[in-house]
Design a binder for these strands. Structure first.
Lengths: 198, 198, 198, 198
DNA sequence: TATGAATGAGGTTTCATTCAT
DNA sequence: AATGAATGAAACCTCATTCAT
């Protein structure tokens, strides 16, 4: 499954040959069929079992957090990067983006069990911050999508343009820039001089 | 080429059959070979000729803009959405993310001619804002990647999860939330009460 | 389809490779898929279109017949042998016997459209003979199955044991022995001295 | 071997997976190879050891028979049905018909050791009847094939069309009809009024 | 210019067979 | 004696590509 994850992320579903997966896993082609009923089942397994452990760890982190909302938010983003973004499973977002329309069922699973659950996690930090007055009041849903987009894109980039030699895509060091950017955007209205002009 | 764009975006490169491209274009399979030497050449053409017109229009818009930097930035983002994100070419980012590693040459072209050039365009607005004191001072490159990520992700979403029935993906109205979010994050330091805590 | 018929009859469905069918037909493997959606569809076509023409001709023969019932019956059997048994389609009974359980739907089609219809044809001759007093009175259905069995077996033999060098399988001359045997068994009771002892 | 017999008869040689044979026999796949050197050897064993016991019993029955030739013939046919046709080995004729051309050596064995020997057995009854004047004089070989065809077909049918729901194929009750039919056809010429017309 | 029949390399999948345990 | 994980040859099927019309 680790070999399959790598190759699916590298090449996409259709361009990945089961024979290559087997070779990278150090077994023969037929052996793959002992454990997965076919290519699609292997894909499902890769998706389903890829991110759930990281999510659970994230939920534990949130539950045991004692600092400010800003710190919790920052820690969640840094934790996500360490546990997901910088790992092999960090390729899953790219993979799901690429294959969602070809596997709607799996896409819905990923949406419901990963994205929604991840938003719920970040949403707790956001609500906490708003309740405490650390953050300005804002709508939960669009804000969550927006604030997570840069760090998500960082992971997507690592598995698409970066390996092509386009190294000036988002460098990893910019994770801190993301966090800074996000926290500034969430700062309370009262602390600022004027409104945002359009 | 329009048919090819649609299908490549929907299904990815490998899963798109030339026969389907031909069928959607209303011609026969052989006819495709009269205009493109093969599948890869068709893919190249789709990528190369997809976004350049929109970029040029964006550059014209920037050149003739007379308002504030914030307005210019907002107009560029809105213009990108109207001309690119909401159009069929709005699927190109998803397509390039999915296929970059399979076509490194094309990825580099896309990076150099689309991404870098797009950043240069947005960068002008950013620099203008910093020079005028409308925006706080910040590093150009990470900030550009970060501020464009949410709206880029909006387009990517439209072509991956949204067609799978995951409708709570960012709706178009959230474009304005993006702009608001970005402008808040770019607001000058002096206008704010405290530093961003970590 | 002619090549497919030959090979299916020779080797059975599972042991026939599509590539061999293509080779015998003088085309390439892929060409088969232009005309049939797969192996099973090819099999269906072979069965469905194999015997119907011969049946129709048999029905025409019966309709225009003016001789005695015995002559009609004999002509039908001889005609069946010439048009079916001695031809390539004469392998279809063997094929259907071998594959019926693997393709129940096709078996039912064959039963309804070939066997039942064939029995109806022979049944006309039998009923005519009984009405005229040429044949003794007997139940239609078992008698039809019984009287057709020897000539059917002759065709089955030709495509199973005969090609294995078991040449003392029924030769074609034995068709006349069949007819003689059958007509004797159908002779009126009154013409005979005693009952059949058991 | 019992499991193999069932499955070979049901599905044919090629479509039978050794794994299914093992499963139906309640052992593992590897165990089959402890007793048979491979699939073909298993097939051979099934054929070779399937019908010989029944034949021997038939020969004993003939040796100890004291009744009329007609009674002997009828008893042989009834005995064959009970011991072979109605048993699992009754599927062997269908199996051999289907696979003869794929296994010519086995086909010749079956022909020499089963068919020829069976004909010899029936032939004794036929010769006895002709010598006694119970039966008309006729050529031995074609007559044997012809008279055995209906009851053979009954067994073949049981394993091909009947399991497909084509129940109006030869019902088993028709065994007696067969015997009646055969004995009528074998009745002496002198007992009949006229010749068989053609 | 446009077609579509034909091709064959290459993919997924099956399954007889082996062998260490 | 029995197992079952592993193998790889071979089958079915797809589809990019060609070419005569």
């Amino acid at each position: 499954m680790s070999a399959a994850l790598e190759l699916f992320v590298e090449r996409g579903y259709a361009a990945t040959r089961l024979e290559d997966v087997a070779a990278r896993a150090g077994v023969s082609k037929g052996t793959v069929y002992l454990y997965f009923s076919g290519k699609e089942a292997l894909f499902q397994a890769v998706i389903r079992e890829g991110l759930l452990p990281a999510l659970e760890q994230g939920e534990r982190l949130a539950a045991g957090h004692g600092g400010s909302a800003a710190q919790l938010l920052a820690d969640l983003l840094r934790g996500w990067w360490e546990l997901v973004g910088a790992q092999k499973v960090g390729g899953l977002p790219k993979l799901m983006i690429a294959e969602a329309r070809n596997f709607p069922q799996i896409a819905r699973f990923y949406h419901d069990e990963v994205i929604v659950r991840g938003h719920r996690l970040l949403g707790q930090a956001l609500e906490l911050g708003m309740a405490r007055g650390e953050f300005r009041r804002c709508e939960l849903e669009p804000t969550l999508s927006i604030l997570f987009a840069p760090v998500l894109m960082l992971a997507v980039w690592r598995h698409s343009f970066v390996p092509c030699g386009c190294t000036d895509g988002p460098p990893e060091a910019y994770l801190e820039s993301c966090i800074d950017f996000i926290l500034r955007a969430l700062a309370p209205e009262s602390a600022r001089g004027g409104e945002t002009p359009t």
